[in-house]
Amino acid sequence: MSISKGDAVSWNTPQGPTHGKAVEKRTKEFEFEGQKFKASDDEPYWIVESDKSGSKAAHKESTLDEK
């Protein structure tokens, strides 16, 4: 799977599937909204933006589905 910036993606939340777009790829350890994430080239994270709320969150690339 190869997600690119701006791609439409979906991911699961406790409330059900959420749709949005990939905003920024991270491949090094980073902090986002007070949480630390251990991203790497092998397990990158994406900052995604929800279509519904406009909220941003960090998710492992492996948990995202391209739409």
Rank of each mutant, 00 (worst) to 15 (best):
Ala8Val: 15
Met1Lys: 10
Ser55Ala: 09
Ser4Phe: 15
Asp42Cys: 05
Lys38Gln: 14
Gln35Val: 00
Ser53Gly: 07
Pro17Asn: 13
Glu33Leu: 09
Asp7Lys: 09
Asp65Pro: 13
Asp41Arg: 14
Ser40Gly: 11
Ser53Thr: 12
Gly20Trp: 04
Asp42His: 09
Ala8Asn: 15
Val48Gln: 02
Lys5Val: 11
His19Met: 03
Ala57Ile: 04
Val9His: 00
Val9Pro: 01
Lys28Cys: 08
Gly20Leu: 03
Lys25Val: 01
Glu49Thr: 07
His59Tyr: 11
Glu33Ala: 08
Ile3Arg: 04
Leu64Thr: 01
Pro17Thr: 02
Leu64Arg: 09
Tyr45Trp: 02
Ser40Gln: 06
Ser62His: 11
Asp42Met: 12
Phe37Ser: 05
Trp11Phe: 14
Lys38Arg: 12
Tyr45Gly: 02
Ala39Pro: 00
Lys5Gln: 14
Gly34Arg: 00
Trp46Ala: 01
Lys5Pro: 03
His59Ala: 04
Asn12His: 12
Asp51Asn: 09
Trp11Cys: 00
Thr27Leu: 06
Ser4Asp: 09
Lys5Phe: 01
Phe30Arg: 11
His59Gln: 10
Thr27Phe: 02
Lys67Asp: 03
Lys28Ser: 13
Glu43Val: 03
Lys28Arg: 08
Met1Leu: 15
Asp7Met: 05
Ala57Cys: 09
His59Val: 02
Ser53Ala: 03
Lys56Asn: 13
Lys56Ile: 03
Glu43Ser: 12
Asn12Trp: 11
Gly20Tyr: 01
Phe30Glu: 02
Lys56Ala: 02
His19Leu: 04
Gly16Tyr: 06
Ser2Tyr: 13
Thr13Tyr: 01
Arg26Val: 05
Lys67Arg: 13
Glu66Gln: 06
Ser40Asn: 04
Ser62Cys: 06
Thr18Tyr: 07
Asn12Thr: 12
Ala8Ile: 10
Pro14Lys: 08
Val9Leu: 03
Asp65Tyr: 05
Gly34Thr: 05
Gly6Pro: 06
Lys21Arg: 11
Ala22Arg: 00
Asp65Phe: 12
Gln35His: 04
Val9Ser: 01
Ser40Thr: 05
Lys67Asn: 03
Glu61Phe: 00
Asp7Val: 00
Gln15Glu: 13
Arg26Thr: 11
Phe32Thr: 06
Phe37Ala: 01
Glu29Tyr: 11
Gly16Ile: 14
Ile47Arg: 06
Ala58His: 05
Lys56Tyr: 07
Lys21Asn: 07
Ser2Leu: 07
Pro44Asp: 04
